[in-house]
């Protein structure tokens, strides 16, 4: 069974040895938040109109985390703005996605000793799975093949969180143009989600740290 969007994003956005985010925790959090909302769009559960989330009347998503998120959206119907949800989800998306990947057996906890303290990091159980996600995107794009919609969204999240060099490596500049064309061909809700994620990454830089 193929991985869900946020699982794929987690694997390519995190170092497979150290388990840390390749683009910083804050930005990976926004990428994961975008991916989780993207799953709901792909499940047909939500739409995005004029920067707001609209909940659609559709069958329940087939994944527990997606269902829980949808219920949370329903419970908090006073907040519909996509930037607000990205901001909110970015703070907890990582642990949620880690739990899902642990449960599916794609990650395993490892204890590492740093100076005096021991902490738990999560590394892929099979490095090939993680490497394959990135290779799959880079291969298809460099051959100018049409990616399936979830993979276009995944590539869009890579661009929005500035991970091109880490994921596409030496073909990064080569794939930029074909990728852009595929992104433009996405349905409006997914395009909106990607640009909101990119804007949230930029806004985090313009925000003052406290």
């Amino acid at each position: 069974m193929p991985l869900l969007l946020a699982d794929d994003y987690y694997l390519i956005a995190h170092d497979d040895v150290s388990g840390t985010a390749r683009c910083g925790e804050g930005r990976a959090g926004l990428g994961l938040a975008g991916a989780l909302l993207g799953e709901l769009v792909l499940f047909g559960s939500i739409d995005i109109e004029r920067r707001n989330i609209v909940i659609l009347d559709a069958p329940s998503p087939g994944d527990a985390l997606a269902r829980a998120l949808l219920e949370e959206l329903l419970r908090n119907s006073d907040v519909t703005s996509v930037p607000d949800w990205l901001q909110y989800l970015s703070q907890k998306a990582q642990s949620q996605v880690v739990q899902r990947l642990l449960h599916a057996g794609h990650l395993r906890p490892t204890e590492v000793r740093r100076l005096l303290q021991t902490r738990t990091i999560y590394v892929p159980t099979d490095m090939n799975v993680a490497a394959w996600v990135a290779a799959r995107l880079a291969n298809a794009l460099s051959k100018n093949e049409q990616l399936p919609v979830p993979d276009v969204v995944l590539s869009g999240l890579v661009v929005a969180t500035e991970l091109e060099l880490e994921v596409f490596q030496h073909v990064a500049s080569e794939v930029a143009r074909p990728l852009r064309r595929q992104l433009t061909g996405l349905p409006p809700a997914l395009r909106a989600l990607l640009s909101e994620t990119e804007a949230a990454v930029g806004d985090a830089v313009l925000r003052h740290r406290r």
């Binding site: 109109e49 852009r180 433009t184 395009r191 640009s195 930029g202 313009l206």
Partner: peptide
């Protein structure tokens, strides 16, 4: 538009 340009993905924000 600053950070809301979405020029990396080239998708533009739903700013109307």
């Amino acid at each position: 538009r600053g950070a809301k340009s979405a020029a990396r993905t080239g998708l533009g924000l739903g700013l109307g």
